[in-house]
Nucleic acid binder design. Structure first.
Lengths: 214, 214
DNA sequence: TTAGTTCTAGTCAATTTGACTATAACTAAT
DNA sequence: ATTAGTTATAGTCAAATTGACTAGAACTAA
C-alpha cells in the first residue's frame, strides 16, 4: 500500500492519498483493492513489493517497509491467502507521475468506501503505524522532496496526525534534530517572506530488510 | 522465538534467555535453531505460532506478537523459505515449567554461538525490537508474574537495556503510569524492608492480531 | 507607502528529568 | 536489646524540555 501527499480539493492543503486498483475478477469484482500480487520463486519479499508497485501504478517509492503479514483464515472467501503487506511513501513529484486509469485511481486515505477483502483493516493499521512512526521517528521527510521548508514538514504532521501544531514550537523541535540540515536556498514565489529550504540527511528505517545496507 | 527471564548463574540477577532446539536433520544438522514449523491450512498465523511453541517447548506464552516476515532468497541452502516469525514473552513461573531435553535447551540471549539459517540475525532484530518497545511501551510487565515489586520491574529494564537505572527516579516514572496498580500486599522474605507489590492492568499490544479483542 | 501574509527568534511559566539526600522498615549479627 | 547492613521510599533541587504566547523580519500585492 502506498501513501502520498496531494493537495486537498477544497483547502489545497496537503492530505494523505493512496492509490487503489479495481478488481476485475471475482471475488469482490468491481470493488477497489490494494495493489498486490503473487510472490515468485526468484525474488525477495521487498523486491516483489517494489515490482508489484511498479507494474500496477508505475511508482518508484522513496521508502518501502514491511507492514505486517496477514494470515487469517477467512480473508478471501475462495481460498486461504497469506498476504505479506508492504507500505511505501512516495514523494509528491513521483506521485504526480503515477499512472491513473479506469482501474487505478487515487483516494483520500480518510474517505474510503468499502474495499475488497480485509483491505479496510489493513489500511487502518497502516495509518495507525504511520501516525505512530511520525510521533517518534523521522519518517515524515520521505513524503517530501529533497528540499523542503519547515512549514511543509509541519503540514505533513498536521495532515497525518489531523491536528494543528504551533508553528514556532514545531520549528524549534525540528531544528533541534541533527538529521535536518539547513541549506542556503530559499523557496521563492509565495506572497510572503520566503522560507529557508532544509534537507533531510538521515537514513530510512532499521528493518531487517534495510539495516544491512549502510 | 521466546524470551524469558532467568537468574544469571553468576550474579543471580535476572537476565534474558531464549529456548533453542537442536537440528536433527540437514541442513545445519547439529546446530541450534529457533523453534518453528510449517503453517497448516486450517490455522491462523498466530495459532500456528502458539501451537509450534507448545509442541516444541511446552510453553504457553503470556504475550505473543508478530515479529517480521523473513523472505530472503538464500535463507536456506536447499530451498526457498519464507518464515513469518512471532516472538513471545513468558512469565518466570511458566518458563520454569518448560521442557528441557537433549535437543531443547535455554541459552542466554547475549551469549549465543552460531545458529542455523539466518537465526542469529532474527534474534538480533528481536532484541532490538524488545529494547525499543521497552523504552516506550508497557511490555516489560509481560516478563513478570501477576504481582511484582518496582525493583523487579527495574531489574527487567536493566537486563534488557543492559545498563543501570536510578532506583528512585525509576520508581517515580513507573508509578506515574496509570496502568500500574498498587496492591495492599508486600513481598516478605528478603533481608530488608519488604517492598510493596504492584500489578499491571494494561492490555498487550495493538497489532492487527490483538487489537480486535478488547 | 501601506496592508497582508508567513517566517523566525525570543520570552516565560509549567512540566519533566537526572543526580542526589535522607529517612523508613526490615533481617542478621553481636 | 542493640547495632550494623540492606533495600524501600519520599523528597529536594537544578537542568532540560515543553506549551502558550509576543514581536519583529521579510517578502508580495494593492
Amino acid at each position: 500500500m502506498i501513501f502520498a501527499l496531494r493537495p486537498s480539493e477544497k483547502s489545497g492543503r496537503p492530505t494523505l492519498w493512496i492509490p487503489l486498483v479495481r478488481r476485475i475478477r471475482e471475488p469482490f469484482k468491481g470493488l477497489w483493492a490494494l495493489p498486490g500480487g503473487p510472490l515468485t520463486h526468484s525474488e525477495s519479499l521487498q523486491d516483489a513489493a517494489s515490482r508489484n508497485l511498479r507494474e500496477t501504478t508505475g511508482l518508484a517509492p522513496n521508502y518501502l517497509e514491511q507492514l505486517y503479514a496477514f494470515g487469517g483464515l477467512h480473508r478471501s472467501p475462495t481460498q486461504r491467502v497469506v498476504s505479506i503487506v508492504y507500505w511505501a511513501l512516495v514523494q509528491p513529484t513521483e506521485a504526480a507521475l503515477a499512472d491513473e486509469s479506469e482501474n487505478v485511481r487515487w483516494f483520500r486515505a480518510d474517505r474510503l468506501g468499502e474495499l475488497a477483502f480485509d483491505h479496510n483493516a489493513i489500511i487502518d493499521y497502516a495509518l495507525w503505524r504511520l501516525r505512530n512512526k511520525m510521533a517518534y521517528g523521522s519518517i515524515a521527510y520521505h513524503l517530501l522532496g529533497e528540499y523542503f521548508t519547515l512549514a511543509q514538514v509541519r503540514e505533513v504532521y498536521e495532515a497525518v496526525l489531523d491536528r494543528e501544531l504551533d508553528p514556532a514550537n514545531f520549528r524549534r523541535q525540528v531544528k533541534a534534530t541533527p538529521e535536518i540540515e539547513e541549506t542556503d536556498h530559499y523557496l521563492q514565489g509565495g506572497k510572503h517572506r520566503p522560507p529557508r529550504l532544509y534537507r533531510f540527511t538521515g537514513r530510512p528505517g532499521l528493518d531487517p530488510d534495510n539495516r544491512s545496507t549502510p
